[in-house]
Design a protein around this nucleic acid. Structure first.
Length: 339
DNA sequence: GTGCATCAAGAATCTTAGCA
DNA sequence: TGCTAAGATTCTTGATGCAC
């Protein structure tokens, strides 16, 4: 790859003149300009992003901190972020915290060293108390760059935020199950330290109460948003020989764990037991498995987070922005049973 | 209209001093 | 003389102020 120095040599000018042509500022003789532009085009010269950052004292790299790189949900969010970043000349550094607060602080420290221009973060933990929020706040303050929080909103947050209609998703999922004729409806909760899990559960509780149904406590399973826990909890529930009419699964991974246990034990979803998940599991559609869920446009959430970050870069003093991704009910048959 | 000099951060390389 | 540690210098690339 050519450097500005080599372009200058080929054009018979100094690199200052090439720089003026590149940035379209200062005086440059029209003939000299045309000659330089021709060389740039012929050699497909592109200025080094690292050197431009160094020179301008501003980076073109965005740090994205996510808690589960192997979760398809975050894969799609990243896709949306990448799309907008790419269109606007930003590159991305990804950090996976594996839902670990210490790893999150390390990742932010690494991004500080990289001198990123902004950070998009899905917090690793619930941050339900002021002390842990302060730790995160301090780490982000050290970076001194715009921040956007995605998906996991939490109390005391002060940053631009993009999240999902968590309460509504819990409510709609439960309501759809009730409309399908189910009465004894359980739920596999998410990690209740997270606000999103508490909100989804609250939606479930309110939908049950609004329809005059009691919550069957033995079918309120204390999950943590992982496949493994959902699988174990579902297996134990099946082994107890008593099943509810249907279950709400609180995220895509919980749905996978639930379905895996059901298949293993020979129980047919949509016939022996109903299920409505929060978040889609695209792979089930590919496999022809009818799965009803409350979905959201995750790629759009990624796009919006990057757009919000760029807006914050341009206008650092405007009020905090919050964008709520709408939820959409997709009924494919698993909300019913033949019992 | 043009080019020199300078600046930025940090790694790599070179130089120097001190000691055994 | 050889080794180590510390400090100084060089190098990378692009932007820009200022002199000619």
């Amino acid at each position: 790859m050519l450097t500005i120095h080599e372009v200058a040599e080929l054009a018979g000018v100094s690199k200052s003149t090439v720089s003026r042509v590149l940035n379209n500022n200062g005086y440059v003789n029209e003939e000299t300009r045309r000659r330089i532009e021709k060389i740039i085009q012929e050699h497909q010269y592109k200025p080094s992003a690292a050197a431009v950052s160094l020179s301008k004292q501003i980076g073109s790299t965005i740090g994205v901190v996510i808690p589960e790189i192997d979760n398809t949900f975050f894969g799609e969010v990243l896709k949306g972020i990448n799309e907008v970043a790419d269109q606007n000349g930003f590159s991305i550094i990804y950090c996976d915290t594996q839902n670990n607060g210490d790893k999150e602080l390390k990742a932010l420290s690494a991004l500080e060293q990289q001198r990123v221009r902004g950070v998009i973060i899905t917090p690793a933990m619930g941050y339900g108390d002021k002390e842990s929020v302060d730790k995160l706040k301090n780490a982000l303050a050290k970076l001194d760059v715009p921040v956007v929080v995605v998906d996991r909103d939490f109390d005391y947050s002060q940053w631009d935020t993009i999240y999902f209609q968590n309460y509504e998703s819990g409510y709609i999922a439960t309501e759809s199950m009730i409309q399908a004729g189910n009465k004894k409806i359980g739920i596999i909760q998410g990690d209740m330290q997270l606000k999103i899990a508490r909100e989804r559960f609250r939606g479930y509780q309110d939908a049950m109460a609004a329809n005059g149904l009691e919550i069957p406590e033995q079918f309120v399973l204390k999950g943590d948003f992982t496949i493994e826990t959902a699988y174990e909890l579902t297996k134990r529930m099946i082994e107890s020989k008593v099943l509810p009419d249907g279950m709400i699964t609180c995220n895509n991974r919980t749905s996978i764990g639930f379905i895996k246990a059901m298949i293993e034990k020979g129980i047919t979803i949509g016939s022996d037991i109903a299920v409505v998940g929060i978040d889609n599991v695209p792979m089930l559609d590919v496999l022809g498995f009818p799965f009803s869920c409350v979905s959201r446009d995750t790629i759009e959430m990624g796009r919006m987070s990057m757009k919000l970050l760029m807006e914050r870069m341009n206008k650092p003093d405007v009020q905090r922005s919050i964008w709520v991704a709408p939820c959409k009910l997709e009924l494919n048959g698993s909300e019913k049973t033949n019992r």
